[in-house]
Amino acid sequence: MRQYIYKRLWQGAIAIVGALFIVFIAQRLSGDPVALLLPMDATEEDFAAMRVELGLDRPFVVQFGLFFSDAVRGDFGDSYLWNQPAMSLLLDRLPATLELALAGLVFAILLAVPLGVLSAAYRGGWIDNTAKLFAMLGQAMPGFWVGLLLIVVIAVKLQWLPAYGRGTLAHLILPAIALGWYPVAAMTRTLRSSMLDILESDYIRMERAVGIPERLIIWRYALRNAAVPLVTMIGVYFANMLGGAFVIEVVFAWPGVGRTVVEAVFARDFPVVQAGVVLASVVFVVVNLIVDLSYGFIDPRIRHD
């Protein structure tokens, strides 16, 4: 177990260093990282100071070292649009993004579990086909488009839910649908196939023979076991939601990390962009790490995967 933890921690660390390296490369790709990191009205002295800070006259490895040592301290430069350190600006907005991603995940689970179970139970029937189509639609409809349609129909025409902003639970529903529908297809399929396996197992056959009602068998005994593969993937889905939230935040004027970074791209506020990419990667890696490790504790079989 301990070895497994070390291995995962080590992998996570490499992944984050790699992400930092990608950001570093992107910075150099632009040709002039100094111009990228300083506001346009920076003075010649600012430029000179930044050149020294980045170590532009020194070997490439040293440059990355300098970048890396700033990065681990969370220093990605100041946002010149907002006059504050880029990372702290984004950390302020992280809770909003986490909230949205979590809501999207909850929506996806609420939809995928009944769909997956019912399509396994009535395999080949109309429920199965409808569920499949519904799930596939979610995969094919871009989340931002779903969001726009929801705004027009649910918020503006029917006036059932607020169209934008953050605050109450009601504000969360539409963005959560727009964000959460996408993974429903994959989740449904995972659950459906593991349900099918379980439903054909000897163990369930025995319970049937004993005369336990089918409904009870499906929803209690089979689902409990069939959910394991789905549960192990939840971390991955959650982390993916964080990335997906970047566009959904723009559609719903959600005050999160994604919207801030998108605006920073347009305003050429590069410190915020690079901090955003690193933050997204770190959150992604950490979430997956936590999920993996906790499953490692719960279900030792997974460790050997």
Partner: peptide, 18 residues
């Protein structure tokens, strides 16, 4: 003063009374 750059969302916020 809420900041809502997107036309659609700003209009929706007004229409819904937000």
């Amino acid at each position: 003063i809420k900041i809502i750059p997107e036309d659609t969302t700003r209009v929706a916020a007004f229409k819904t009374g937000a």
